[in-house]
Design a protein around this nucleic acid. Structure first.
Lengths: 231, 231
DNA sequence: CGTAGCCTTGAAGGTGATCAATGTTTGTGG
DNA sequence: CCACAAACATTGATCACCTTCAAGGCTACG
């Protein structure tokens, strides 16, 4: 736990949520906040905890998940740099609990903001409307998933990979913006790991997924990926 | 299409969204609005249409759905009286399109509000925060569904029925707040109609669902229903 | 060095999909 | 009011996809 650095402030201003706000407003919005480091698999909060604060991801990634009745994890969303985690809950009544868990993927740096600051400085029309925008995107993505729920697994895996492609390189061969384990892909789709493994093995043999030259990373051929999504 | 009646205004005030607003504010929020009647299966808007307005349901119900690649409908949400449909889209840029279709279930009366009014009179902190609340509930419900995606169909059907029980009567035998066809249940769960029919036939034989004495309505034994959800 | 988390493979089995045929209900127009 | 179409419901037979279970391997990390 530590305080905000100057370069963090600069970074904040690049996030969609804070675009072209004046510095005074920005500073009021992060009153009482602090930077936290989460290690791989640390929880920011757990399903059932009393709602206390929310955060903005400065570096790394956080997965939002629930525990299914049968002990599996179901992943609802992968939150990346610039994403806001838990803000929707700040409007809830006193005594509310988190309906979901937030778990770090790899070392993650977050800016942790107390509920009171939200209630004093975030209830501004512009901000709320931007939060709505973020929420809208997340909603849309969930609905995309649901739309494909009747498609064969290969299509659903392809769709998931597509959503997480790193668009910085516009090559045919792209990488993912976060490293996803087979287990995580399975948890995000609500299927068994073994099924994901078998499906992705097939995608290897077709050349949709390839081993990267250097490391254990994986590279995705976007043309072949898109072909899986047709029909 | 017609204008708002006095009793409609009274009704509006009973909705969560408008709780304890003064009349002046309420009137500004419905500037330029009009009441529309939708017949069964009429669309309020269709996936792909240019975004123009949103609505509040005065009477009846609207289902929000998408078309899957294979021609099936996938139902995302059943919106009932007092629900707001399409408000999240009003913040989007010019030229946005509806990502979803909104289709009436039975005769439905709505208050249809133009985008311009939203932009002038809804960007208020209180309202936005209430919209967030509605959205939060919808999000939560979708996440509940997803959490059960690995459960057997009987559990998922039970869960869907539970969500739509009419809690006005606190008897053991309850009815649904909207009439759902087997097809709609199937579309909401993303499964085949035949599977729903077979599952519900079984629930009949167990006594979880029963024919109502008078009509073709169905009555649900809530104790047996809850038993299906355990484990 | 041993544990924990993830990956992999194979064999067996079940749940729900698909297809095809038929019945029922509702609404529409002549 | 009847005839016809459209939407919804039902049933059975067959089959594919994904799950489950069991066993083992790999890699990272204290």
């Amino acid at each position: 736990m530590s305080n905000l650095q100057t370069h963090d402030l600069t970074q904040l201003k690049t996030f969609q949520l804070f675009q072209s706000l004046d510095s005074r407003q920005l500073e009021s919005m992060i009153l009482g906040s602090c930077v936290k480091y989460l290690k791989h698999r640390d929880y920011f909060f757990r399903e059932g905890d009393a709602v206390k604060d929310f955060c903005i991801i400065l570096e790394g990634a956080i997965k939002l998940l629930r525990h299914s009745p049968r002990g599996e994890d179901i992943i609802m969303h992968f939150a990346l740099k610039g994403d806001v985690v838990g803000a929707l809950l700040m409007n809830q009544k006193e005594g509310a609990i988190y309906p979901i868990s937030a778990k770090a993927m790899g070392s993650t740096r977050i800016l942790c903001i107390p509920k009171s600051t939200f209630r004093q400085h975030w209830l501004d029309a512009t901000i709320q409307s931007r939060l709505n925008s973020l929420l809208y995107q997340r909603m849309n993505s969930i609905q995309d998933d649901k739309t494909m729920s009747t498609s064969p697994l290969k299509v659903r895996v392809s769709n998931l990979l597509l959503k997480h492609l790193d668009h910085s390189s516009d090559e045919i061969n792209q990488t993912l913006s976060i490293k996803l384990t087979r287990q995580e892909i399975a948890d995000a789709l609500g299927v068994a790991v073994e099924s994901v493994i078998r499906t992705m093995r097939e995608m290897y043999s077709e050349g949709t997924i390839n081993k990267a030259s250097d490391k254990s990373d994986e590279v995705i051929n976007i043309e072949k990926l898109l072909k899986n999504l047709e029909l």
